[in-house]
């Protein structure tokens, strides 16, 4: 579980995060949504420890990040997995090399143990024939799956995803969403996803945090988001005609 208490973050004169308080539950897919420039990425980078908030605290299962020593912070980082928007796979390494990388850096496993673990996670993300291919030789969807495999290879407690299905076709996007949800439940991970994709919101948003201008504008579940009367949320989530119609049908059905 990750608890965020009144965090503020500024860059020069720009006050990006203006006091966000929330919590993210273990074993659930938590989504952060909001318009571009609402502070989602800065918030996610604060959660990852890449940015240090000027005020407020972030605690990971009770451990307050700012109170940790450098060594403890390094240990905590090894409990985090991250899936970047562009996958961020290492170009110079094969798929297998990318997945084994954290194991080689941080564990004392034998080569065969590392191989077994890499094979296992690659199989878990349904990639069995791409071990020796390089990132440039595989599709965007496969790259995302490799990124997920690399993120979970160390059995992380916390999984962060920055727009995991951007640039993917709708079908592959659903596959990636479902994979993240399955992994979250299977390994009881605290998963936080930064997304613009309303399909993800509806499908896997067990908790949704809506940010606007660096503030928490709304939070709830994917079921609650249908019912909310919060105009800021509805203007953003139901900005397309399709979603407006879907919501209308939902409301009519309820009535």
């Amino acid at each position: 579980m990750i608890e965020v208490n009144d965090i503020h973050k500024s860059f020069d004169d720009a006050h990006i995060l203006k006091g966000i308080t929330t919590s993210f539950q273990k074993g659930k897919t938590n989504l952060i949504i909001g318009q571009s420039g609402s502070g989602k990425t800065v918030f996610l980078k604060c959660l990852l420890g890449l940015f240090t908030p000027e005020e407020g605290t972030i605690s990971y299962d009770g451990k307050i990040y700012n109170d940790l020593t450098d060594a403890e912070k390094r240990d905590l980082r090894q409990e985090m997995g991250m899936v970047f928007q562009g996958s961020a796979l290492f170009d110079s390494m094969s798929v297998e090399g990318n997945v084994k990388f954290p194991l080689e850096m941080f564990t004392k496993q034998s080569k065969s143990e590392m191989q077994d673990r890499a094979d296992f996670v690659l199989k878990r993300v349904n990639l069995v024939d791409a071990h020796h291919k390089f990132p440039s030789e595989i599709s965007g969807g496969m790259q995302k799956r490799v990124a997920i495999a690399r993120a979970i290879v160390m059995n992380p407690k916390y999984l962060f995803c920055d727009e995991p299905n951007s640039g993917l076709d709708p079908k592959t996007a659903i596959v990636i969403d479902n994979l993240i949800k399955e992994i979250t439940e299977e390994y009881d991970i605290t998963t936080i996803i930064n997304t613009h994709d309303m399909n993800s919101v509806m499908e896997i948003g067990e908790k949704i945090l809506f940010l606007k201008d660096g503030l928490k504008a709304w939070e709830g579940t994917n079921k609650e988001i249908f019912k909310t009367d919060n105009e800021t949320v509805t203007d953003f989530v139901y900005s397309s005609d399709l979603f407006k119609k879907v919501r209308q049908m939902y409301i009519e059905e309820r009535n």
Binding site: Q78, M82, F84, F90, D91, F106, F160
Partner: peptide, 15 residues
């Protein structure tokens, strides 16, 4: 290129 494609951020996140 590693900076642009977030590979350096990936290293940082891993510790």
């Amino acid at each position: 290129s590693m900076r642009v494609t977030e590979q350096i951020d990936a290293l940082d996140v891993m510790g």
